[in-house]
Design a protein around this nucleic acid. Structure first.
Lengths: 207, 207
DNA sequence: AACTGTGAAATTATTCACAGCT
DNA sequence: AGCTGTGAATAATTTCACAGTT
């Protein structure tokens, strides 16, 4: 069965919703839906892609469902992550507190700027980019975050793939070419603002 | 006609593709498609939502199409942007060089931390959050970037809306409640990593 | 001849609605 | 009685394929 990628995204949001629920053991698809802003049918459909977790007339056991989603997403395991590019954004992500609760730990950081190499940031020592492959192999790292400038992004991505990385969160405003066994998620901040500008322009026209 | 939001996203990517093309006046939908990683039919369909820009047997005038897309997205105008929350991520975004070329200028920044207020970062003086409304009214700001912690995010969003903001790029890991005339784009970095973890978990199962 | 613009077809995703379980 | 799980119906989006234009 093909599972829509959007369903995975919603699962993450249901998960956060569930974490916020207290004082009750069971929750219905209808309640999850209300709290997370989707429809009840969608909640049930999304969960049904992965199995039958509910009990008719009662709903879903919150603790069980929470564990289940975490297992589906893979956040029940700890993932070591590498970060390439210790500029402003890279430094901010190193300090970001939101990753560890979901099982993501930035284990090593790389840059090619001699002034940054050797620095200890948030407990991580910045290494020379030439150390990338051995360091990633050693830590068995499969996930990387790319926060380098666009002109070196493709090069960095190529190095990551050679080092065995198969999942990349890319902040450089290019879409890197990768073999099809490698997954890339692109976050282009300017593009997000462009979408907002489009909304604003449209809503002005509607007036 | 209803235009898929995904089409707007692709338009941003076509735009970047076009900026990278040199030495030729015309480009075909097929070439745009190859360079940006979509299908030719999709490119034509997306452009057709907004008008007829092409010339049969020749393709699209690159300069004309570039201007056209920029006009559609609203990036032909300059947009002043406010940033709320001058932590690690906020500071990184203030320094981010990718916004201005697309017409976005972070004009003012706010925080509630006395140690930050008054600081000059990248030419922007951090103001007390209590100054939000008058400052935004004065600069006629309609777009805001929210990089505060999740526990104050809803409060900040409410203040922004009262100050006349109608488009919000939100990095706090909550989905703020807003009236329906206000557009919000949520970027939740942990959720992006969760999607990658899901890909990895899946691809391991396939083996 | 080459490439656009666009209806029609195919595919994908969401919603409906209800049988079946507790 | 209440809520799940799921086929069937609907809606949205993408792809196809070709008539029309330069």
């Amino acid at each position: 069965m093909k599972i829509p990628l959007a369903a995975i995204h919603r699962l993450s949001l249901y998960y956060r919703t569930l974490l916020g629920v207290r004082d009750t053991d069971f929750i219905s698809s209808d309640e999850i839906a209300k709290l997370s802003g989707f429809s009840a049918a969608q909640v049930r459909k999304d969960l049904a892609y992965f199995g039958q977790f509910g009990i008719p007339s009662k709903g879903y056991r919150i603790d069980e469902l929470t564990n289940m989603i975490s297992k589906i997403l893979g956040t029940d395991k700890a993932w070591n992550v590498a970060l390439i590019g210790v500029g402003n954004l890279g430094t901010a992500l190193l300090a970001y507190k939101g990753f560890e609760p979901q099982g993501f730990k930035i284990k090593c950081a790389f840059d090619n700027d001699l002034r940054k190499i050797g620095k200890n940031l948030e407990g991580v020592v910045v290494q020379d980019i030439s150390e990338l492959k051995p360091a990633l192999k050693k830590e068995k790292i499969r996930i990387a975050i790319v926060t380098v400038r666009s002109d070196s992004a493709q090069e960095v991505v190529d190095m990551l793939i050679k080092a065995g990385v198969t999942a990349i969160l890319n902040f450089a405003p290019i879409r890197p070419r990768v073999p099809k066994n490698v997954d890339v998620l692109n976050i282009d901040l300017a593009i997000e603002l462009e979408r907002l500008a489009y909304f604003l322009t449209r809503s002005e026209k509607r007036k």
